[in-house]
Design a protein around this nucleic acid. Structure first.
Lengths: 209, 209
DNA sequence: TAGATTGTTAATCGATTAACAATC
DNA sequence: TAGATTGTTAATCGATTAACAATC
């Protein structure tokens, strides 16, 4: 397939384009990369290059057919086919993500959570003991694991997920995970985001002194 | 101050260093950039440059004093002084973030949430109606706003936060927010992360065909 | 002293932006 | 046709990595 060498930065912008396109009224039949770029405050060539990875239906002077482009983005991003996932770590964050229904829209289907602590295990709420992880993930052919355990146990959990056949890991712990080749780790580093926020504030406050 | 031109990429790696340093046993008096780099699978020069933004106490042959470096990182990242914040959007994600106690460690103190929907407003749970946002943020001198509303209303909420004196916005909605100069928007784009995960999976699966 | 390590200057790499030809 | 827009090739920019001198 064509999605061989799409850069991570491109990939991360695609959902923004899609979201913007979806927000447009039905009356917008065609849309140009230039218009998208202006709206999202991006460079127009960048948008054009990004879209070229996803679609070939752009026409000079006209732009893209909005509906077609939406369809192509949805397909490319895999929002139309469900990816099953499990969460490891049923603390506050884990349970929150589990309860969050918004991911379905992105094709992510969180089936189960696992936790080490017997006190939080609760079959009713689909929180199972961690010793059952390997068996269940294997049987259900789970390919995505979400890590929401404390930093100290993240690597251990990661190894377990990899052993269980998971191919992609969404890591919410602020650590670097070591994985074999072919396994992807996507870090959702909230601590990193907070560092950026906090640094901005101290700069702003420093300025006004 | 010295933190004038620290790059965002550097800033985002600092919490990883800090976390690793904290995980070390007390017996590790000194630590080298080389050792940190190896552990985190980064380039050693990169780590050295990053640390140079934060500390000047590195000594050839010895490295950094672990405790000193931890202290310097904590101070630089502002984990030692509390930043008060409010959340707008008390849906599942918003309430989850509110309930998540882990942010305190990073100096982020979420005081209140606001929501448009009278049904979720609940003074007991510190969820207030949105019309009180401006007055309260102004009075409490809130500088950080967290947006967890649906994409369609994110810009509106953003404008309101800016009006209320907020200087930094942590945006969980998958949209580009337009803000005046001097206001920082840090996007926590879960949709973008999912795009990367999903793309990896379809590549892997394509390979095995 | 010798060697590990720091910090700096130069080279490389990848992503973004600019310039431009092709075209509906 | 003229002009807006696409897609491509070249230039720029910033971040990462390599090379190296300084030093405890």
């Amino acid at each position: 397939m064509s999605n061989q060498n799409i850069s991570k930065s491109t990939l991360q912008r695609l959902p923004l384009y899609l979201n913007y396109l979806k927000s447009l009224p039905d009356t917008v039949i065609n849309i140009s990369a230039t218009a998208i770029a202006e709206e999202l405050r991006l460079n127009d060539v960048q948008v054009r290059k990004d879209l070229a990875c996803v679609s070939t239906s752009g026409k000079p002077k006209i732009g893209y057919n909005t509906e077609d482009l939406i369809r192509e983005l949805v397909a490319f991003l895999g929002y139309d086919n469900n990816n099953n996932a499990v969460i490891v770590g049923a603390g506050k964050l884990g349970r929150a993500l589990m309860g969050y229904t918004g991911f379905k829209e992105y094709g992510l289907n969180i089936l189960l959570a696992f936790d080490q602590n017997p006190d939080v295990v609760n079959e009713q709420e689909l929180i199972l003991p961690i010793f059952r992880l390997k068996e269940i993930c294997g049987r259900m052919k789970i390919k995505i694991g979400i890590i929401t355990v404390p930093a100290a146990s993240a690597q251990e959990v990661c190894d377990l997920l990899v052993e269980s056949g998971v191919l992609a890991i969404w890591n919410f712990a602020p650590v670097h995970l070591k994985v074999p080749d072919g396994i992807l780790v996507q870090n959702e580093n909230m601590a990193a985001s907070l560092a950026v926020l906090s640094n901005h504030l101290s700069e702003q406050i420093g300025k006004n002194r």
